[in-house]
Design a protein around this nucleic acid. Structure first.
Lengths: 156, 156
DNA sequence: CAGTTGTTTTGAACAACTCAAAACAAGACA
DNA sequence: TGTCTTGTTTTGAGTTGTTCAAAACAACTG
């Protein structure tokens, strides 16, 4: 760790996070950098999970601070908030692209799904009932590989 | 009310609801019939809204009873539970068909959307990451006609 | 380095929902 | 028709996820 070429190159990720926060017009603080690090480690995390991963290294941080950070990031467009039925809100770094999600019906794990067939057909419902459609959100539900193996073991 | 041709034909809707409950293998009770009536009147209702519409005519009913009724109906396949981000759970009578929803980003009103282009493309994500896909849930977000008029008035 | 403004801490409150035990009623059966 | 069993509702409390508000605090500006 301490034998790297240049001091700045040693921690590129951290530097990036601070820069991203600054670029969004927000002040750079320790909880904010930590939340971005946590999201880099687990790309679909709840506020609680992020607080857990943060509180070990950044003592004195509160869960409410994490909620505040995530609210600021969401309105600033740094993170996206998704809310699959039956789970707490999840936060992810990927914003701006129209990607979707697949959720495991058994363990609630979440993975990203690119919407290649996607944009055009999915954004064109047959009858919008007079609504002006802004976005379309697709959530797939199924069994993740781990739970497939587990349920296969259950049924002899 | 008391001058109808036959006694049974006087209350067709109520009879239907009781029959539907019975057909689902559940006991017919006043709160259950009332919940189905409430859902007939407002096809996308929260437990709270249903309780409100019920408690005026059926005194002594508790909100917890409504939650219990809805849980029983959901597992029995009589109603479907949807959970748009930012709202409490909504319940609807339409089950079994693969229809979707459009939600107003301003007032949170919900309308059904048929998925005509739908089934095939929407159920075929490009890369399922090893998941076995069971269902696809599409939620459109936009402005309802009322809110279009309201926001148009706001911007001179 | 001081001032301003935005952030975090602390503590409380809230909404939606679930749980558990006792009272009760619907439908089956004698 | 009355009794029994089982499922349902009532009552009351508890949990989880999230938001609010005031005071303490720290990041960037000049």
């Amino acid at each position: 760790m301490h034998t790297s070429g240049t001091a700045d190159a040693a921690l590129p990720a951290v530097v990036d996070h601070a820069a991203e926060i600054r670029a969004a017009g927000l002040k750079v603080t320790a909880p904010r950098v930590a939340v971005l690090q946590g999201l880099a480690a687990s790309p679909h995390a709840t506020a609680d999970q992020l607080y857990d991963s943060i509180s070990s290294t950044l003592t004195g941080t509160s869960l409410q601070a994490v909620y505040g950070v995530l609210a600021a990031f969401t309105t600033a467009g740094l993170v996206r908030r998704i809310e699959p039925a039956g789970s707490a809100a999840l936060f992810e770094r990927r914003v701006g692209d129209n990607h979707h999600h697949i959720v495991c019906t058994r363990c609630h794990s979440v993975r990203d799904v690119e919407c290649v067939t996607g944009e055009a057909p999915c954004l064109t419902p047959s009858d919008t009932a007079g609504f002006v459609v802004q976005t379309a959100e697709v959530t797939f539900w199924g069994l993740c590989p781990d739970c497939q193996a587990d349920t296969a073991a259950d049924i002899p």
